[in-house]
């Protein structure tokens, strides 16, 4: 077994233990938070189910009886943990559908959108960041700083509407909203990607600047490596570490933080669904989503760890 494989295994084991701890903590905390929310859960669930034309006190009482919301909190917590231990996420209190099915579908759409956004952001940020970092203080660097600040300060909601107006309504290149095909992915990905690239191109630029001014780069040049080889073999590899870590953080943000973009583009993602579930006090749905998101973060961290270990040979012992 080589050094990398051994380290990867150790990382896997650590993250595996972490996953179990996260599952238990998220399970209990999400339950406690749902209990702590103000307002009567039976009324909120009835409102989510029947809509305001049909919802009334009688329907709230029926929901309370059906879901056992009048039972003591500890009994409800025990019931939730028991189903959880059987890898069962239960059924949605509002829609009556399987929580696992809903999450699988929504998480899939969210991951697709998140991946699209990261790809879009990298396509913009990588060339821009590297070029700016190679000539810090140059014209491109100053301009990209100004544009980055400008783009970052536009709320995603407004940016999305502007992109739709230009690319969907005026140029008719892409559809406005929905998810019928690949073309639907472009505008929401670009909306999110632009916001991400505004920050990540600066992170990349700083990493490149640091790498360019490091002692080891001077050494590489002194030992006779060409500027190009120094860049591709040493500078980019070193600069990649903070960038990969940062992309990991961005992905985490994307999966749950894109509620408004999902709403604008009528995208059936998990962020939008989670917000609806919280409003509708859909207890099973919120708990299930929180759990799955928690575990997704652990998995993301694992991927980032492995990628960094792969890029950085230091710490590998023979």
């Amino acid at each position: 077994m080589n050094a990398f494989a051994r380290m990867a295994l150790a990382t896997l084991a650590t993250r595996g233990v972490q996953a179990i701890i996260v599952a238990v903590i998220v399970g209990i905390v999400s339950f406690a938070m749902m209990q702590a929310l103000p307002g009567d859960a039976a009324y909120r669930i009835a409102a989510g189910r029947y809509g305001y034309d049909m919802m009334d006190a009688a329907s709230a009482d029926a929901v309370r009886a059906e879901l056992g919301l009048d039972q003591p909190t500890l009994v409800q917590l025990w019931a939730w943990l028991k189903t959880l231990a059987q890898f069962d996420l239960g059924t949605s209190a509002v829609y009556g559908t399987s929580v696992a099915d809903e999450i699988a579908s929504q998480l899939g759409y969210s991951l697709l959108l998140a991946a699209g956004a990261v790809v879009a952001s990298l396509l913009i940020a990588l060339p821009l960041g590297i070029a700016s970092g190679l000539r810090p203080g140059g014209l491109l660097d100053s301009m990209s700083l100004a544009v980055s600040i400008f783009v970052r300060s536009i709320p995603a909601f407004a940016l999305g509407i502007v992109l739709v107006l230009v690319f969907a309504v005026q140029l008719k290149l892409f559809p406005v909203a929905g998810f019928q095909g690949f073309s639907n992915l472009v505008l929401p990905s670009l909306t999110l990607g632009l916001g991400l690239a505004a920050v990540s191109n600066r992170v990349i630029r700083d990493a490149v600047v640091d790498a360019m001014s490091a002692d080891w780069r001077l050494f590489a040049r002194t030992k006779g490596l060409s500027a190009r080889l120094t860049l591709t073999r040493h500078v980019l590899r070193n600069a990649a570490l903070p960038v990969v870590t940062y992309i990991g953080v961005q992905l985490a943000y994307l999966i749950e933080g894109v509620v408004i973009v999902e709403s604008v583009f009528a995208w059936p993602g998990i962020g939008h669904a989670l917000v609806h579930a919280i409003f509708g006090r859909d207890i099973a749905m919120v708990q299930g989503t929180a759990l799955v998101l928690g575990l997704t973060y652990v998995a993301l961290n694992l991927c980032v760890d492995l990628a960094c270990r792969g890029i950085d040979p230091r710490g590998r012992t023979a």
Binding site: I161, V164, L165, A168, V169, K172, P175, V176, A177, G178, Q180, S263, V264, F265, A266, H272
Partner: peptide, 19 residues
């Protein structure tokens, strides 16, 4: 096809673009 677009802005844009 039925599409639920929760935001009024999105619905207006869907109408204007012909989507």
């Amino acid at each position: 096809t039925y599409l639920a677009a929760s935001r009024a802005e999105t619905r207006a844009l869907l109408a204007e673009s012909g989507d």
